[in-house]
Nucleic acid binder design. Structure first.
Length: 417
RNA sequence: GGAGGGGUGCCUGAGCGGUUAAAAGGGGCGGACUGUAAAUCCGCUGGCUAUGCCUACGUUGGUUCAAAUCCAACCCCCUCCA
């Protein structure tokens, strides 16, 4: 590792971000000599990014921390076409308003990891709709299309796999790589961006951008990808009960986010600490060495550090405290998700299954009833035995709330109002 | 344009007139064991205040006491030929 001259490359390598790079040596040299500008592209189909995007976000963070300038590219233009790689033919196309709302929501997430501004190493967020919207077909073909040979495009994995498996590949999709390459070239011209980073699945697209930059703009560009992060047992990261683990608090509460990291598999702790926290490497080495049940301490540190990074120091600490109360002391913690229920309604008596659904622990009354039948539902930590059991104001505990639980890990509070 | 094959629950994928809310696996949830881990084992996995009712097997009609299953038209997908 010591043979890397730049702090940037050094950091990426030792923390495990590096999967492939077009020319690591040259990039390293460049980063050691001067400030470089680099970007990662993100989709704007949802109002929040998810855990799967976190690796690249962290990479941008380190880029800035090591003295360079990050660009967050929002795919406002490409989103308008709709990503054809999904299987949903009937996917709804998003309106401009929706896309812009998504982008501003996503921007909030980035402010936790990057500092934006006008300085030399300040981050900027750009939208590819700014240039893609104005593209004219014939000029595009003449200026860009001539640099792409079908022969070469056919050799890319994304295309090749489809063809080999005899699955359809639409012209739209075929053009995606061209648009993405165009983005890179455009950013190179506008902002002197020399490096595109992304997940390993983006390798082909990144290469195309580099090629185009060289041919059409005569610039030397670099590409770098991160490994696909899976858990030690091979599962894709970030898929849980409710679906994706989102980064925006409206979608996924800080407490749940903390829990997500707390439940990391033993074998992943060290790797995740390096990737998803900014703890110093020697500290991580110490935590990684913990064995047996002691590794739980490392998981707590991981959870608190990762939550603090995204949602702020306070949220990290509060989540840790809530977890401590809930799991260790067995005390009702007020940091749990809380739902207000009118006092009068409570006094009249409400079925437990209805409440479970109301606070969001279950998705339907039927699911709640099954949970009760399976013995997984508890009120104030006492198992509910009757499927149709009702509770009333008597269930309000000393803390003035009613605690509902689905299984051992998922809890919610009811507050009379 | 011609000839075949197919569209099933979150996903993959059986069923091909009643015993089918629909096999099996995956995923998910819950339980046991643990360390809020992994592995393993067990249960659950459409909705509804519910011994019942209502929706569901591409869409719409039809045959039948009875249809995911048979027929017709339509939509979509795939393969081969042109």
């Amino acid at each position: 590792m010591s043979n890397n001259k730049s702090e940037f490359v050094q950091t990426l390598v030792e923390r495990g971000f590096l999967h492939q790079c077009t020319d690591l040596e040259a990039l390293d040299k460049r980063a050691a000599e001067s400030v470089i500008t680099s970007y990662v592209g993100y989709d704007a189909t949802a109002d929040s990014l998810h855990i799967g995007n976190l690796v690249s976000i962290m990479m941008l963070h380190w880029l800035q921390q090591t003295g360079h300038r990050p660009i967050v590219l929002m795919g406002g233009g490409t989103t308008k076409i709709g990503d054809p790689s999904g299987k949903d033919e009937t996917r709804q196309l998003l309106t401009d308003d929706r896309i812009n709302a998504n982008i501003s929501s996503i921007r909030e997430t980035f402010t936790s990891f990057l500092s934006f501004g006008d300085g030399e190493t300040d981050a900027m967020m750009v939208n590819n709709a700014d240039w893609l919207d104005e593209l004219a077909y014939i000029p595009l073909l003449r200026e860009i299309g001539r640099h792409f040979t079908i022969n070469r495009m056919l050799t890319f994995d994304s295309v090749k796999l489809r063809l080999e498996r005899e699955q359809p590949l639409t012209f739209l999709e075929f053009n995606y790589m061209i648009l993405q390459a165009y983005d890179f070239m455009e950013l190179a011209k506008r902002h002197d961006c020399v490096l595109q980073m992304g997940g390993s699945d983006q390798w082909g697209n990144i290469i195309n951008g580099i090629e185009l930059g060289r041919r059409a703009a005569e610039r030397e560009l670099f590409g770098l990808t991160t490994p696909l992060i899976t858990t030690a047992s091979g599962a894709k990261m970030g898929k849980t009960a409710a679906g994706a683990v989102w980064l925006r608090p409206e979608r996924y509460s800080p407490y749940d986010y903390w829990q997500f990291w707390r439940n990391t598999e033993d074998a992943d702790v060290g790797r995740f600490l390096k990737l998803f926290t900014i703890l110093p490497m020697d500290e991580i080495a110490r935590l990684e060495a913990l064995e047996g049940s002691e590794i739980n301490d490392a998981k707590k540190i991981l959870a608190t550090a990762a939550t603090a990074l995204l949602h702020g120091e306070d949220a990290g600490r509060e989540s840790a405290e809530t977890a401590e109360k809930t799991f260790v002391s067995g005390v009702t913690a007020d940091g749990l998700p809380t739902t207000d229920v009118p006092r009068a309604e409570l006094e009249g008596g409400i079925a437990v299954f209805a409440l479970l659904t109301r606070v969001g622990l279950t998705g339907s009354n039927g699911e709640a009833r099954r949970l009760i039948k399976g013995g997984g539902a508890r009120v104030n930590d006492v198992a509910v035995s009757q499927e149709t059991a009702e509770i009333n104001a008597d269930a309000i505990n000393d803390d003035g709330v009613i605690k509902l639980s689905a299984g051992k890990k998922r809890h919610a509070l009811i507050r009379p109002a």
